[in-house]
Design a protein around this nucleic acid. Structure first.
Lengths: 353, 353
DNA sequence: CTGAAAGCGCTTACAG
DNA sequence: CTGAAAGCGCTTACAG
C-alpha cells in the first residue's frame, strides 16, 4: 500500500549526489517561484538585479527566498553570463613572505566587494605560472599576477582574454601597480654615502624578475649621483638560503655596504656573515628590500627599502574590479611610494683594528 | 549580396561577452564533435572518463580537441555533476605566519591533484568565518578549516553538506589533523626544569582556540610531572602586539620561564621585556609554539615547540581528497608530531645581582 | 562502443 | 512590470 508505483516514484534522473544531502536538496528559483506565485524569470530578476521588479513582488520573492533558505547556484549563474565573481591571484612563491601582504591586501578588497579570491603559485617558474594562469582563466573574472615570471607577450595574451592586473612589473598595455623604487633607493644610498661607504654591492634577484632589474638600475643611478661605486652580484635564488650562499661573493667584492634584491636575501646574508665573525654594521652594512614580516626580528634589525605590499595587493584588486565593472578604463600604471626604513643593520663603517 | 538575410545571420542570442573574445569564442564539445565526426556525448565521454570509448575514437577526439585548443568549461561541467575540482581553505588570520605554511602545504597538494585552492580568512571571528564557509560551500567540493573559531555544531553542520577537514582542532565526527602537543611540551618543560626553573607561566591564546586549551593542559600536565609551578596568563590577541601587552603580567607573575600560545606572542613578549632592560634568557626564559618563519631571526633566537604546519596543510588536503574520491572513509583524527626546537631564548637562570 | 535526449539552475531578449 | 521560452556547455541514464 505504501510506495505505490506512481510515475513520481520512478528513480530520479539527474546526477546522484554522493554526499548526503540531508533529504532536502537546496532550493532553486523554481521553488521560490512556486511559493511566491510568480514566474521563475521574475524571481531571477528580483534576485539578480533588484529594481526591475515591483516592490510588492520583490518582497514576496525575498520572503520566499528567506523562508526556503535559498542560495544561488554560482555555476548555474556563471554558465549563461560568463561571470563568476571570482578572481585569481598568482604569486611567484607562496613561501615568500613578500607575498603574504599582497595576498592579504587582495583578499580583503575582494571580500569587501563580494568577490572570492583564488590563489595559486608559480614556484618561480614561468612554465608553472602560465599553466596556473591558463587553468584559472576558465573560472575567474580576472587575474592578478604578482611578480610574474612569464614573457610580456604571454601576459598580454592572457590580458586579451580577461582583465589582468600585474604587480611588481610593468607590461606594455596591461595595467599594473609597481612600487616606485627611486625614492627609497636614493634615501638608502644617500644614507650609506653619508656614513662613509664608497663601494656598494647589489645582490640581484631572479634574472626574469622585472623588479630586480629596476632595483639594480635605481641603485646604479643613485650611486652615480652620490659618487659611490656599485657592483652587481648574482644570487641563486631570492631566499634566506640564497642570501647565505652569496656571502662569499659579497666578501670577495670588497664592498662595505650591500643592498639585496629582497629582505630574505639580506637576512640570509647577514646570518652567514655574522656566523663568519663579521660585525654588522661595524664591518659591513646591509640593506634589504620590501620590509617583510620579521625584518625587524633580526639582530641588528634590518634596514630596508619598504614597499607597501598590502597596498599593492588591494590597489591591484581595486583596479581589477574597476576593469570588470566600468570597463573601458585605460590601462595604466599605478605607482606606490617606497621609503627607507632605517634600522640597525646599516651605519658607519668602523675603522678596522 | 554579401550578408544575405539568412536565419544564420540573425543577431546571436546568448549573453554579450564584455571582454573582447578576439573573434573566436572558445571551442565546445560540439565543435570537437563536428571535427571528429562523432556525437557530442561521445566527446564528453572521451574527455571526462577515458576508457569508455574506442581507442580510435579517443584519438580522433583528442586530436580535434588539441587542434581547436579546447578547454572544458568548468561551470558547464559543475552544473550537472555538482563537482568543481575546487576546495576551500579558511584560515583564522591571513596576516599570521602560522598559516602560511598550512596554506602552502594545502595548495601544493591541491595543485598536484589538479584541484584549485580557494582561500578566505575569518579574521579570528566566528561570525565572519561561518559566513565565509557558507559562501564557499556553494562553489567547492570540500572545505579545510584551519584553527576554526566556530562552534563544534556549526562545523558539524557544514560537514553534513560537504566533506570538511579541520586543522588544529578536534571536532567529534569530523576528520581532523592536529599536532600532538605532548611530546614537544614535555621536552620543553623538562628542559626548563633541568635549567632550574620552578615557576612557569603560560600565556594563553584566544578563548575560542581549541589548541590553546590543549597547550595549557599539556603545560599543566608536564609541569606537574616535573614538579614545576604553572600559572596561566591571558592575552588580548595572539599577535606580536598581544605579546607586548602581556609583558606586565608576566613580570608580575614571578615566573622565571614562560611558554606562550604561539611564536608571535613570544616574540612580542621578548621585545617588550628586552626593551624594559631584561636579559633573555639570563633573567627569563621564553618558549614559543609553532616555529613560524622568522622565529630564528630574533635575538636570541626563539626556542619553540615546532608544529609541522606545512605537513598539516598537505595532510588535510590529502584527507579531503580521500573523502572526495573513495568516499566512506571513517572520520578520524590524524596526529602529527611536535618537537622542541631549542634555541637561545631559553636556558639557565642567572642568579640576580 | 556510440547516438539522441533530457536535464543541471540560472539569465535574458522577446513579447505583451 | 511580468511570462514563456531558449540557451549557456556539459553529463549521463537510456537504448541500441
Amino acid at each position: 500500500m505504501s510506495e505505490p508505483k506512481t510515475p513520481d516514484a520512478a528513480a530520479p534522473r539527474g546526477p546522484v549526489k554522493k554526499h548526503a544531502r540531508n533529504g532536502k536538496s537546496s532550493a532553486t528559483i523554481y521553488d521560490i517561484a512556486k511559493v511566491a506565485g510568480v514566474n521563475p524569470s521574475t524571481v531571477s530578476r528580483a534576485l539578480s538585479k533588484p529594481g526591475r521588479v515591483s516592490a510588492k513582488t520583490q518582497k514576496l520573492i525575498e520572503d520566499a527566498a528567506a523562508e526556503l533558505n535559498y542560495h544561488v547556484n554560482p555555476f548555474a549563474r556563471a554558465l549563461p553570463t560568463g561571470r563568476t565573481s571570482t578572481f585569481g591571484l598568482i604569486v611567484a612563491d607562496i613561501t615568500n613572505p613578500t607575498f603574504f601582504d599582497i595576498i592579504r591586501g587582495a583578499e580583503t578588497t575582494a571580500t569587501a566587494r563580494d568577490y572570492t579570491l583564488v590563489l595559486a603559485e608559480s614556484a618561480e617558474s614561468a612554465v608553472t605560472e602560465l599553466k596556473a594562469a591558463r587553468r584559472m582563466m576558465a573560472t575567474v573574472d580576472g587575474l592578478i599576477l604578482a611578480s610574474p615570471r612569464m614573457d610580456d607577450d604571454e601576459i598580454r595574451a592572457l590580458a586579451r582574454d580577461k582583465p589582468v592586473v600585474v604587480i611588481n612589473r610593468e607590461v606594455d598595455g596591461v595595467p599594473s601597480v609597481v612600487p616606485d623604487v627611486n625614492k627609497g633607493i636614493s634615501e638608502a644610498v644617500r644614507s650609506l654615502a653619508a656614513n662613509g661607504h664608497t663601494k656598494v654591492a647589489f645582490v640581484a634577484g631572479p634574472p626574469q624578475s622585472w623588479m630586480s632589474a629596476r632595483r639594480w638600475e635605481g641603485v646604479q643611478a643613485a650611486c652615480e649621483w652620490s659618487r659611490v661605486d656599485a657592483v652587481r652580484l648574482e644570487s641563486t635564488k631570492p631566499t634566506v638560503d640564497g642570501g647565505r650562499q652569496v656571502a662569499r661573493d659579497v666578501r670577495a667584492s670588497g664592498a662595505t655596504a650591500v643592498l639585496t634584491y629582497n629582505d630574505l636575501l639580506a637576512i640570509g646574508l647577514m646570518q652567514e656573515l655574522q656566523a663568519a665573525g663579521m660585525v654588522v654594521p661595524d664591518q659591513i652594512s646591509i640593506v634589504g628590500f620590501d620590509d617583510i614580516f620579521g625584518a625587524d626580528f633580526t639582530t641588528p634589525p634590518l634596514t630596508t627599502v619598504r614597499s607597501p605590499l598590502g597596498e599593492c595587493g588591494s590597489v591591484a584588486a581595486t583596479l581589477l574590479l574597476g576593469l570588470l565593472h566600468d570597463s573601458g578604463e585605460p590601462a595604466s600604471t599605478v605607482r606606490v611610494e617606497t621609503e627607507l626604513v632605517l634600522r640597525g643593520s646599516s651605519g658607519r663603517l668602523l675603522p678596522a683594528g
